[in-house]
C-alpha cells in the first residue's frame, strides 16, 4: 500500500469508524495509514463485491431467474463460480503479487478442512465474531518470524444460496445455517 494519508485525516477516519470491537492497538508506521484503517477499508471493498456477486449475480440468476446453475465445478459444468470460490480466486491473485497483505475466508464449519481455523488468532477470532454478532476482532500475531496485524470480520449468510449450498454440501459439518447467520470470517493480515 503506497497510499499515505496525513495523520489528521487518519484520525478523522478512525474516529468515524470507531473502535467497536475487541481490539489490540497497533501502531501505524510513521506517517502512514494505520493497519486497522487499511484492513477495514480492504474489508469494506471485499464484502461489497462479495455481496453484489452473491445477491445480484448468483442468487438472481440461480434462485430467481433460474437461467444458470452455480457449481463448485463451474468450468466443467459451464456454470457460475460459487461466491466463496470467487472470493478465494481473488485472494489467490493477490497472493501471487507483492501486495503486502493477505486475506482468507475461514470458518469453524468449513467445507474444505484447509479453511478451518488454524492459528490461535484465527481460532479466537472466529469464536469471537460468532459469539458477538456484528463485531470484528483485531489482534496481532507472529507467523513465520513476521508480526502481523490480523483482523477477523464476520461473514454473514446474505442470500438463500449461501445457506442452501452449505447445508446441502456433502462435506459440510453443519446443516442448519439460516440467513443472517455468521457462517465464517474474513481474515485480513497486514505485516507490521
Amino acid at each position: 500500500m503506497k497510499t499515505r494519508l496525513s495523520l489528521a485525516s487518519v484520525s478523522v477516519v478512525i474516529a468515524a469508524l470507531g473502535m467497536t470491537a475487541c481490539t489490540k492497538e497497533s501502531a501505524a508506521p510513521s506517517g502512514g495509514i494505520e493497519p486497522k484503517t487499511m484492513s477495514d477499508a480492504l474489508h469494506a471493498v471485499l464484502v461489497a463485491d462479495r455481496t453484489v456477486y452473491t445477491k445480484n449475480v448468483v442468487n438472481r440468476l440461480v434462485k430467481e431467474d433460474k437461467v444458470i446453475k452455480a457449481s463448485e465445478q463451474w468450468k466443467d459444468d459451464k456454470a457460475l463460480p460459487l461466491p466463496a470460490q470467487m472470493f478465494r480466486y481473488g485472494s489467490e491473485i493477490v497472493a501471487e503479487g507483492d501486495s503486502n497483505f493477505s486475506y482468507s475466508l475461514l470458518s469453524l464449519w468449513p467445507i474444505n478442512d484447509q479453511n478451518n481455523a488454524k492459528t490461535e488468532a484465527e481460532k479466537t477470532g472466529l469464536k469471537y465474531i460468532f459469539d458477538n454478532p456484528g463485531q470484528n476482532f483485531y489482534t496481532e500475531e507472529s507467523l513465520g518470524g513476521t508480526t502481523y496485524f490480523t483482523a477477523v470480520y464476520p461473514d454473514v449468510a446474505v442470500a438463500p444460496v449461501c445457506v442452501s449450498c452449505h447445508n446441502n454440501h456433502k462435506d459440510t459439518p453443519k446443516k442448519d445455517f439460516k440467513i443472517g447467520d455468521v457462517m465464517g470470517g474474513v481474515v485480513i493480515r497486514i505485516p507490521i
Binding site: A95, S102, S104, L143, G144, T146, V187, P191
Partner: peptide, 15 residues
C-alpha cells in the same frame, strides 16, 4: 499453486 502457500497462515507448512 504458489499462491496457496504465500498466505502467512501457512507459515508452519512452508517450514
Amino acid at each position: 499453486p504458489k499462491s496457496k502457500f504465500t498466505n502467512p497462515r501457512n507459515a508452519d507448512r512452508i517450514k
